[in-house]
């Protein structure tokens, strides 16, 4: 089964996302708390990741750079950015770097799952 990689510097958010996903039957979840770590995990699991969920503002390597890096070896897997109302400009950059879409925080678990389901048919 393919995996979902969730990256956020807030452990709470990672936990919430993980729990929500598990509740709906998505068992294989990878996580990281910053861009550098995330990049390592992504490279190691190349070909086995079905969806990326990245926070925008993170220490060491932010979400925007992370998108750019991931896109150098994976051009097709969808990348969803977790963002806030004030990040509009950054979203434009993310898009240019190859992000697939964004979700504004805070979000409701059920709606989030709908998005995941839209990308992961199986």
């Amino acid at each position: 089964m393919k995996k979902i990689l969730v990256v956020d510097d807030s452990e709470v958010i990672v936990e919430v996302v993980k729990k929500t996903l598990q509740m709906y039957g998505y068992e294989e979840i990878l996580n990281a708390s910053n861009g550098v770590e995330a990049l390592e995990v992504a490279k190691k699991n190349k070909g086995y990741i079905a969806l990326y969920v990245f926070d925008v503002n993170m220490p060491q390597m932010d979400g925007l750079t992370l998108v750019k890096e991931v896109r150098t070896f994976d051009t097709t897997t969808p990348i969803i950015m977790l963002t806030t109302e004030t990040d509009k400009e950054k979203m434009k950059t993310a898009k240019e770097h190859g992000a697939t879409g964004w979700i504004i925080k805070p979000f409701d678990g059920e709606k989030f799952i709908k998005v995941v389901q839209m990308y992961l048919k199986n």
Binding site: I80, M91, K95, A99, T100, G101, W102, I103, I104, F107, K111, F112, K114, V115, Q117, M118
Partner: peptide, 13 residues
């Protein structure tokens, strides 16, 4: 808006 996947998922629903 382009990239607004939450809305997109809702539209699908």
């Amino acid at each position: 808006e382009e990239g607004d996947v939450l809305t997109l998922a809702e539209i699908k629903q």
